[in-house]
Design a protein around this nucleic acid. Structure first.
Length: 422
RNA sequence: GGAGAGUUGGCAGAGUGGUCGAAUGCGGUGGUCUUGAAAACCAUUGUGCCGAAAGGUACCGGGGGUUCGAAUCCCUCACUCUCCGCCA
């Protein structure tokens, strides 16, 4: 959520910057400014009426104390009009506040100046690529490899739960566990504190990181208890700091956690959802940082470097793209996506998304710190997947396939306990 | 699932319908003392909104009500804790 004070002060610049998202927010912003003006005016009127009422109340108290009943009762009569006026003003104010809030929810984050123009993922800017693309005569897709070596059972998942809930088995399960431990160790070495958070969150947490109210349909909702299955560890990890005033000397706050992630993925279809490409439940290690606004972009670079390091150790061909305005998420100011190459599918699979949200999430979370000038300011939040497992698994299986089986990269062997899957 | 007790500032913890944004302690910050530190002492220390400022206003779990006036009384919802039951 953008800050109303910023919108008030630089609405032109903000509308201009938001055009990168291929939408003109002029109308909403104008409405916001208008609403904000009435809101402030109403607030001022209410405050002054309230002040009158408070003064009068004190006087009445004094009169009663000094035994002047008649005068007190006379003064009492005067409060009736004031009470009515304040009541009406308070209602108007609440309405305006709600309207302003609703409007603010509709405005996405202001894209960073480096965000390229564009409409779809085709327009993302390639900023880095690494590794040789494998060249197979006959490449077997991962959903055949997993069947051949009995690593993942998709049909059993359908039987037990439904499509998109695979079962990992034997070396498949072991590989999964190895990847989680490898990613967590990498994060630990980079100074991130590990958490095991709840996998179910309440409504307030959903609002805090912005899944609610917009993406409600994407989360599994336990209506009986009004709780939501987490779509990413970002939700519980970032909400640790909801409503907090952190100390500037704590920056950067670095945390990580492994969790399963649950996504309804309503509206997905076709070959995009084949095999491990898109699941309702998948595993992910997430890294989160809370940082001083002056340093958040350095931190973003560091997080990108961290993910890069992991993919290099896994010996996977990958590339990094800077998301264009059209592809940029609602809450992000700048996002780098990591994509690994899938040899058999001949396409790039997104495995990580590293973003700086600046104050957008912090404003909703009310996550602040006391700056050196003594003022309370919103912190910057950042997060990234390091990494999401299924597509890494898919790429590992497809790219490392040989006639004798699937080769396990060196860095993973101490975690798997085997060097080949056959 | 049953019964009871609670929810107050960064934390702990008082609070009789009016002078309570709230005692006190701890913590934080600044200072005195000290070669330095500790201790002690002194001062200071919540947040939002409106306002150029002075100042005003709101906030004692959320919402509503009674009253001239509510942290305090009433209703309601949420959450926490304790005991009993069940149970990994």
């Amino acid at each position: 959520m953008l800050e109303i004070a910023n919108i008030r002060e630089e609405s032109t610049e903000i509308v201009e910057a938001l055009k990168k998202r291929n939408f003109d927010y002029r109308e909403i912003v104008d409405d916001l400014i208008k609403t904000d003006e009435s809101r402030r005016q109403t607030q001022a009127e209410l405050d002054s009426k309230q002040a009158e009422l408070n003064t009068l109340s004190k006087e009445i108290g004094e009169l009663f104390k000094s035994g002047k009943q008649a005068e007190a009762n006379e003064a009492k009569a005067k409060t009736a009009d004031l009470k009515q006026a304040t009541h009406a003003l308070r209602e108007a104010l609440t309405e305006l506040e709600n309207k302003q809030q609703e409007l603010l929810y509709q405005v996405p984050n202001r894209p960073h100046s480096s965000v390229p123009l564009g409409k779809t993922d085709q327009d993302n800017e390639l900023v880095y690529s690494s590794g040789e693309l494998p060249n197979f005569d006959v490449a077997v897709p991962h959903w055949e490899i997993t069947e051949k070596y009995d690593l993942i059972n998709f049909e059993l998942g359908v039987k037990i739960t439904g499509a998109g809930f695979p079962l990992y088995k034997g070396k498949g399960a072991r590989l999964q566990r190895a990847l989680i431990n490898f990613f967590l160790d990498e994060a630990d070495n980079a100074g991130y504190t590990e958490y095991i958070p709840p996998h179910v969150v309440n409504e307030a947490s959903g609002f805090g990181t912005g899944q609610l109210p917009d993406k409600e349909g994407q989360m599994y909702h336990v209506t009986e208890d009004n709780l939501y299955l987490i779509p990413t560890a970002e939700v519980p990890l970032t909400n640790i700091f909801r409503g907090d005033m952190v100390s500037a000397s704590d920056f950067p706050i670095k945390l990580c956690g492994y969790t399963p992630c649950f996504r309804r993925e309503a509206g997905s279809y076709g070959k995009d959802v084949r095999g491990l490409n898109r699941l309702h439940q998948f595993d992910k290690v997430e890294i989160v940082q809370i940082q001083h606004p002056d340093k958040s972009y350095e931190t973003l670079d560091a997080m990108v470097a961290h993910v890069k390091g992991i993919l290099e150790k896994l010996e996977l061909p990958f590339r990094i793209v800077r998301l264009c305005g059209g592809d940029l998420g609602f809450a992000a100011a700048l996002t780098f996506d990591f994509e690994v190459y899938s040899g058999a599918q001949d396409k790039w699979l997104e495995v990580s998304s590293v973003s700086n949200f600046e104050t957008f999430q912090a404003n909703r979370l009310k996550l602040r710190f006391k700056d050196s000038d003594g003022k309370n300011k919103l912190a910057h939040t950042l997060n990234g997947s390091a990494l999401a497992l299924p597509r890494i698994m898919a790429a590992l299986l497809e790219n490392n396939q040989t006639e004798n089986g699937v080769r396990v990269p060196d860095a993973l062997q101490k975690y798997t306990g085997f060097d080949i899957i056959n």
